[in-house]
Structures are given as C-alpha cells and as structure tokens.
C-alpha cells in the first residue's frame, strides 16, 4: 500500500524535514528513562547510589538477572501472565465485539436502554467488597478466570468499537442483505473482516490491561504458583518503599530491602514481553485497510 505519490511543494518539504526531526527528538525523550531502567538493571548497587543518571553502566553485571532466574518463580509467573493475557484478550474481544455490533445497529429496539446501562456502569461501581463476593459466589477464587471475566468488557472500549461499526457505510450492509445474509452472517463475514485494524487496536488495549493488572490477582488468587508477574513486580516495588522509616519500624524488619538493580531488572522482565507485541500488531494499522478492502 503506502502513500500515493503526492505533489511536494518546498513548504511541504521543509515541513517533512522538521516533522522528521521533531518526532525523532520526541521518540528519544520518551525512551531515555526506560534506557536508564535497563542500564540500571545491569549496574552495580554502588553505581546506582552514586551516579544520578546514566544510560551506560560503568561496571556491567548480570547479578540481578542471575538472581531472578535462579529459581523458576519468575519464569513461571511470566508464563502465567502470557497465558492469561492470550486467553483473556480473546475472551475480551469476543465479549466486546459481539456486544458492540448489535449496539451499533440504529434500529435495534431497546438500544438506548442498553447504551444507558453501559454508560451508567462506567460512572458507578459497587466497589471492591461486593465485586469480590460476586467473584467468590461464582466459584472463581483461585481460578485464572477471575483475572479475565470481571474485566471482560471495558465499557470505554465497547463504546469506541460501537462507533467504529457505526461508521461502516450502510450500503454494505444493505447489499449483503440483498444477497441473503443474516445479521449474524453480516457480522462474521463482513463487519469483522473489515475491522481488522480495530481488532488489532483493541487486542492491544485488552492485552495491556490484563498484563498490567495485579490487583485482581492479589485479591482473587491466593495460590502463589498462580501469580502473574505483575504481582511479583508490585511486591518488589512495595518492599523497597516499605523499608523506609516508620513503615519499617512497624512492618517486617526481618525483610531486607531488595537492591535497586533487582527492582529495575524486574521492571524490565515484567515489561519486555508486552512491549514486544506492539511492533507485531502495528502492521495491522496499515493505511486504508478498512475502506480500501470494501471497495477492492
């Protein structure tokens, strides 16, 4: 695909150059702190306490990573995270898209009622304890489904997907109906294939949300072998905070605070897998896919 050939005026060329440079600078500004995190995870404790900021450690050490991988705990938790994220994303997409499509049909009776219900639930929530009781009464405690089902539809995402469906030209639907398709057929055969970039986008959104969620696991999962990696990350970050002063005085003084490099290494380990999926999904954001394929 790619952009069609365009006239380029001198002004346009200057704009291109400026745009190129500006975006490059923005990209660097946004990645630098993460580079520090990576560098710090390979640095010694002495360097981390004496140098305030660096991107290349003076002495390079793998100690933090050796510690992390000295047990199968992190590997296991990453596998749990990957499994929950993959299954969860599929489930979330299924729930969201199957609900968004009917809601995008303007002449569906009761549509306004359903939409009000969705919007209302965005603003008002029963809180932690009632939700816990629901999860418990469904028998989901200590089950991976407790990390997926309670967040199966993000109303925010649902509304945006609905809007995308609404923007698909109505003629398409009409012509499909003439061809004898049922609504279900239109949804599966026309609407879904057309919304590939949208699916890719929301796959990303759900995957990231599920990957980053640690609180559900803390509440619903007590079996430590089922904890996703974010729980471990959270615990390490919290430990390095809770050993400060009075918290330490009343807390667990027999717990030694983790090294800073270990903390940073866990950040890297817990972040990299989800970062990697973006470049793969990116290709689905290619231009013109939606309407282009309609006409082609």
């Amino acid at each position: 695909m790619g952009m069609p050939k365009m006239h380029n005026t001198p002004g346009g060329r200057i704009f291109d150059v400026v745009n190129f440079v500006v975006l490059g600078v923005i990209g660097i500004l946004m990645i630098i702190p993460f580079l520090y995190v990576i560098a710090g995870s390979f640095a010694t404790e002495a360097e981390l306490t004496s140098r305030s900021f660096f991107i290349f450690p003076e002495t390079f050490t793998l100690e933090a990573y050796e510690y992390i991988f000295s047990t199968d705990r992190f590997i296991r938790s990453i596998l749990v995270s990957i499994g929950v994220t993959v299954v969860g994303t599929i489930v979330c997409l299924f729930f969201t898209f199957s609900m968004a499509y009917p809601l995008s049909r303007r002449n569906l009776a009761g549509r306004n009622l359903f939409m009000n219900m969705v919007v209302f639930s965005m603003m008002f929530s029963g809180g932690m304890i009632p939700t816990y009781i629901v999860v418990k009464s469904l028998g989901l405690l200590d089950s991976y489904w407790a990390l997926i089902l309670p967040i199966a539809i993000n109303p925010f995402n649902l509304i945006i997907v609905k809007t995308f469906f609404q923007n698909i030209p109505i003629e398409l639907e009409e012509s499909a109906k003439v061809d004898g398709c049922t609504e279900l057929g239109i949804f599966w055969r026309i609407m879904l294939p057309l919304s590939k970039p949208v699916i890719a986008t929301f796959a990303l959104f759900y995957a990231v949300a599920i990957w980053n969620d640690f609180f559900s696991a803390l509440l619903y999962i007590s079996d430590s072998s089922k904890w996703p990696v974010q729980v471990l990350l959270q615990q390490i970050i919290l430990l390095s905070q809770s050993t400060i002063g009075d918290t330490a005085a009343t807390g667990a003084e027999y717990v030694t605070p983790p090294d800073q490099s270990l903390k940073l290494a866990v950040v890297v380990i817990a972040t990299l897998p989800i970062l990697i999926i973006y470049p793969f999904l990116q290709k689905h954001f290619a231009k013109g896919m939606l309407l282009g394929s309609v006409k082609g």
């Binding site: 609180f215 803390l218 959270q234």
Partner: peptide
C-alpha cells in the same frame, strides 16, 4: 501478600 493485606482483611471480615 502484604501489598493487599488491609483489603483482604476487610474482605475476610465482610465475607
């Protein structure tokens, strides 16, 4: 885990 202890305690009391 201590990160969720207070919440879990309240939930336990409630349940």
């Amino acid at each position: 885990l201590d990160s969720a202890y207070a919440d879990k305690l309240n939930i336990t009391l409630a349940s």
